[in-house]
Design a protein around this nucleic acid. Structure first.
Lengths: 168, 168
DNA sequence: ACAAACTTTCATTTTTTTTTGAAAGTTTAA
DNA sequence: TTAAACTTTCAAAAAAAAATGAAAGTTTGT
């Protein structure tokens, strides 16, 4: 396998993986492309390499910047904008965790708290509902706190976690 | 808020959360419904409560059983089948981790290994590609191992993890 | 062996998500 | 201030994913 083929395979695979985790394919592909580029890439290049339209490129780059994992770069003497991806994987994981927590987990927690707080009657069915949603709330809250803690370590949290977990 | 409203809100929210994580909405809703039911539920009931077709119900229940998080139950003297969800949240997390690892992470690792093993020329661009994909491979491998380890603890891994992580 | 009571399958339809591309907007240099 | 060089927006089109429902399949009781 030579470089071009490998790069393409990587971009495709990363895109597919993204969509299995609720991230749109193009967004994941753009990210993949930027991850393995040693130089900032222009929108024109992204469009060409991924064969996508200007609008699509623009919107997905914007989304990646909103996630804080892609940055604009300016090159001296160049009018157009270039983009780079966050390449430090620890940093990347931290940012993704933070965003998903903020956008998805926190709102879900709010609902879980609400629904687990209803006045349960004698009814077995209702009692079970309250019990189960309460457990779920506690569980999700704990999991979310783990994410928060992870972001505090910042550097190499995964390696540290591995060490801790591995020693039984 | 009374029970029925709360239950509905929970099912809707769980469904929405599912789709943000790459799980189809109905599948997540069925799971939600079964999670908070104290009794096994028939397909008929699922169809009615979620207002979905028989085919849809059948296929998504099947998918949930393939994930190992929903079980068939037989009631004495009843012809039709009933379903229950895994209600132990630790067990649920373990099963989901295992499946996602098997279905998504392992295949991605294979590709990462492949593409990071190309013969890199002198070319800076190619060198960077190999370097970056190698780092990614190591990172994903470590993360996947964490998932594996988690499944070994089985009981209350999250609580243990919290303790470990919390004490700085 | 039959038929009633169910469940599964899958071609077709519907819904949702993503992409396109042209018009509108912005920035910069002269 | 103008216009060239870009980027963003968003209504419409296309593509992808999910849902339907009727026919086929299966199981069970008699």
């Amino acid at each position: 396998m030579e470089y071009k083929e490998a790069k393409n395979k990587f971009v495709q695979t990363w895109g597919a993986l993204g969509s299995q985790w609720g991230i749109n394919k193009t967004m994941a592909q753009i990210h993949a492309l930027l991850m393995v580029s040693n130089e900032p890439v222009s929108m024109e290049d992204i469009m060409e390499q991924l064969q996508i339209s200007r609008g699509n490129a623009s919107m997905n780059i914007r989304a990646l910047m909103d996630w804080g994992i892609v940055y604009k770069e300016f090159k001296a003497g160049e009018r157009r904008e270039f983009f780079t991806a966050e390449k430090d994987l620890d940093e990347l994981a931290v940012k993704i965790s933070k965003e998903r927590s903020k956008r998805e987990i926190k709102p879900a927690l709010k609902v879980l708290k609400e629904v687990s707080s209803i006045e349960a009657s004698q009814n077995e069915e209702e009692k079970h509902f309250v019990e189960q949603t309460t457990k779920l709330y506690d569980f999700v809250l704990k999991a979310d706190n783990v994410l928060d803690k992870i972001t505090e370590y910042k550097d190499n949290w995964l390696a540290r976690l591995v060490v801790k977990i591995m020693k039984k």
